[in-house]
């Protein structure tokens, strides 16, 4: 795969290996966003809407965890999934699943922390109205998550951007296996190490273009939605 230099040639030639890499990048990072959203959205909403001892500490911790170093997350997941680790028998190390797990761990705090902020802001606006309608705690959470949906799209995008851009964690837990766990970022690292800097840069531009395209469509969706629902 990836003979020749210049990303443009690569794209134009429709190199199936390149598309497989792009596809895997998207599948892994979108799956990670899905997993992180499943945990982070309710978790953030719950922290926003409940009062408990140590809540302030939990919020500080969550905000701090937004800056988790990918390499450290990768190493932790690696140690967990390695054959010599506690979950070694699952045989997940060096698989796309392991990469999804690492990225999900990385971005769950981001999604949870930003969700907490969005839901808390909205709750201060909605509190009286929802209380007067007799809305119970669970329904309250669901209502706020639903009504904050436009803001939460941006939250998920932030998580996706972080997941798609990181290389440290997926390199460690995925192993950059050709045709199996090689994604855009690890391919870029590999081409850099092979000294093919133009190709590495080309791949980088493709990655940026993809992230840009996803953000642009989400932004368009947001503008449309804001016009629709205010």
């Amino acid at each position: 795969m990836m003979e020749g230099s210049g990303a443009l040639d690569l794209v134009l030639s429709g190199d199936p290996a390149l598309y497989a890499i792009v596809r895997l990048s998207l599948v892994v990072s979108l799956s990670a966003v899905a997993v992180a959203a499943l945990i982070g959205l309710p978790l953030g909403g719950l922290i926003a809407l409940t009062r408990f001892r140590g809540r302030a500490g939990a919020i500080v911790l969550l905000n701090a965890m937004m800056g988790l170093p990918p390499v450290v997350v990768g190493l932790a997941v690696f140690l967990l999934l390695s054959r010599s680790g506690p979950l070694g028998s699952w045989g997940l190390l060096f698989t796309p699943t392991a990469m999804v797990m690492a990225q999900a761990v990385l971005i769950t705090p981001i999604i949870a922390a930003l969700t907490r902020q969005a839901v808390e802001d909205m709750w201060s606006e909605y509190r009286d109205e929802l209380t007067a309608m007799g809305v119970g705690p669970l329904q309250r959470l669901l209502t706020l998550l639903y009504d904050a949906r436009i803001a939460l799209v941006t939250v998920l995008l932030a998580g996706f951007g972080r997941a798609a851009a990181e290389v440290g964690a997926v390199m460690i837990v995925g192993g950059n296996i050709n045709g199996f766990t090689r994604v855009m970022t690890t391919a870029i690292a590999l081409e850099t190490s092979k000294g093919d800097l133009p190709l590495a840069m080309g791949l980088g531009l493709i990655l940026i273009a993809i992230v840009f395209a996803i953000n642009a469509s989400a932004w368009a969706l947001r503008l449309y939605a804001e016009r629709r629902i205010g």
Partner: peptide, 17 residues
Amino acid sequence: RFLISALTIACLTLGAQ
């Protein structure tokens, strides 16, 4: 969280197995 992730991912068939 790892467990939850793993269980969820189990549904996302990535051909890992």
